[in-house]
Design a protein around this nucleic acid. Structure first.
Lengths: 193, 193
DNA sequence: TTTGTATCGGAATGATTGTTCCAAAAAAAA
DNA sequence: TTTTTTTTGGAACAATCATTCCGATACAAA
């Protein structure tokens, strides 16, 4: 009986994610969204609820796809350090090739919404622990395989890489210089030696 | 002849800096500023011009005091690595002891205003080069004094520390855990060995 | 004390904010 | 074709946005 939706919900959410990612929560108005998503105001509210709810869903989509990519990078048979290098190299490529200079949505949300939004703060904390745990496990595998010396502290090193990664996505916004960034990554990854 | 100002301009600018630093540009309204600074709306516009101009002045104040602190940390007679450690330790202390969790104003401005504000982007680029140059010079001094091995690349290592520092101030917003942060710093500073 | 000028408090501006509402349109089922 | 349900377009909402304006106030020089 109901009329069919004239737009693809996932497609629209993707566009909303891009806009929030680029401009942030406060600098993106519902009018901007209506214009860029190409759907009606009422449809936007009917489908996603509110600006806050839409933002939350857009951010959830980003983290979800981010985790999928993360797992895709870490190929079991490759040396662990190579996998980390790949992860950082892709971050550099993204920074260089994105004319919009969006950076990392997670980092952007951290600096914009903490303090002020406890709900998102908790999401960010969970995300941090998830990624750090993943990194730690990878380092432990590397140690077990003999690729990484057992003098390396898996916990602190995982946290260090997570932190450096966050910083990389900030500074790459300011100066997206491939060579500088790559040389820098090489220096930092020496903590795995 | 003119009536004397009933407020200290520097004091007011400091309060404006704190508010912008904590909430960011877009989430801080002129009404918020009028309320928190304790001065009149008209006085605010008469003294600082506009919201944009006030923000720019507040951000300039932050960078100015930041540079002063930077130079104060690096005591010539101390080992260079100790000076870097002190810099990062103070960043940790600030993160732990600031209940407002403001983070770093420079990082916040980077993620909020780039892309979108070319003027601030240029300021951020200049700031990056300034700090990186300072770091590089310190590392070169360390090498000259024999404290740091000459296999260390001053340029890339300076950039790496700048990047890690930026990341530190992001993740410390999410999880201000002293011990974790300190252990992490120790790991990263091993790139100077 | 008078005069001239800048500050002050607060109202008023027009634009934009997020959100709601409603009549019209459209599509699937009867 | 008729009925039913939802989407759609756009107007309308009150609140808030940055900014301006003005009469009243207050202070320093004359």
């Amino acid at each position: 009986m109901p009329r069919t939706k004239q737009f693809d919900e996932k497609e629209v959410l993707n566009k909303a994610m891009e806009l929030f990612w680029e401009r942030g929560f406060h600098a993106t108005s519902m009018q901007d969204l209506v214009t860029h998503l190409g759907i009606n105001r009422a449809s936007l509210y009917d489908t996603f609820g509110s600006k806050d709810a839409l933002f939350e869903q857009a951010f959830a989509l980003y983290r979800s796809t981010g985790r999928q990519m993360l797992h895709r990078f870490f190929v079991e048979k490759h040396p662990v350090k190579d996998n980390f290098k790949k992860l950082l190299d892709v971050a550099i490529d993204e920074a260089i090739n994105d004319p919009a200079k969006k950076g990392c949505f997670v980092v952007n949300v951290t600096t914009e919404m903490v303090p002020g939004n406890d709900r998102l703060h908790q999401v960010l904390l969970e995300n941090k622990h998830y990624v750090e745990t993943f990194f730690r496990e990878q380092i432990q595998k590397g140690i077990a395989k003999g690729e990484i010396g057992n003098h390396v502290n898996p916990n602190s090193t995982a946290e260090a890489i997570f932190t450096f990664y966050s910083g990389l996505r900030v500074v790459a916004k300011v100066e997206p210089d491939v060579e500088k960034l790559q040389k820098m990554v090489r220096v930092v990854l020496s903590i795995l030696d």
